[in-house]
């Protein structure tokens, strides 16, 4: 089975996310044993952000890393488990809210593909970049 990074590379729709993870220096961590739960925004989710947003973050890796860590939970949780509690603490520190079970919504993003099981965790594909607050 592939790890989280290999799985994302294979999918072909996470180019921006993978670049961001690389710039923020988080690739090694996501290749590690984990386990993690990753809410992975597709490329279109980054395109939807106003101009300049992504560039400013890419220019500032610690700040970018903080936003990316908001998309990661410590531990591997399937959709079935995630919907059992309203909030989960992200690696960034702020809570990630599970807003709806059906359709499955994480904060203001909709999960377009859930429960992609990897060696070191579970990936849920989301249609928007989620932000703390």
């Amino acid at each position: 089975m592939a790890n989280i990074i290999e799985t994302a590379k294979g999918a072909g729709c996470f180019g921006t996310l993978l670049t961001a993870v690389e710039v923020a220096g988080l690739t090694g961590a996501l290749e590690g044993p984990g386990p993690f739960t990753v809410f992975a925004p597709v490329d279109d989710a980054f395109v939807a952000l106003p101009p300049g947003t992504v560039q400013t973050l890419v220019d500032n890796p610690p700040q970018l890393g903080r936003i990316l860590k908001f998309h990661v939970l410590s531990g591997a949780y399937s959709r079935e488990v995630l919907v059992t509690q309203p909030e989960w603490e992200s690696l960034e520190g702020a809570p990630v809210a599970i807003r709806r079970a059906d359709p499955f919504e994480v904060k203001n993003a909709t999960v377009v593909s859930a429960d992609i099981v990897c060696d070191n965790g579970i990936v849920h594909v989301i249609d928007r970049v989620i932000l703390p607050g």
């Binding site: 106003p50 101009p51 300049g52 947003t53 610690p62 936003i67």
Partner: peptide
Amino acid sequence: LVNGIFAVAGRP
């Protein structure tokens, strides 16, 4: 202003 807020949101 909204676009400006997003563009610089990640400034250190």
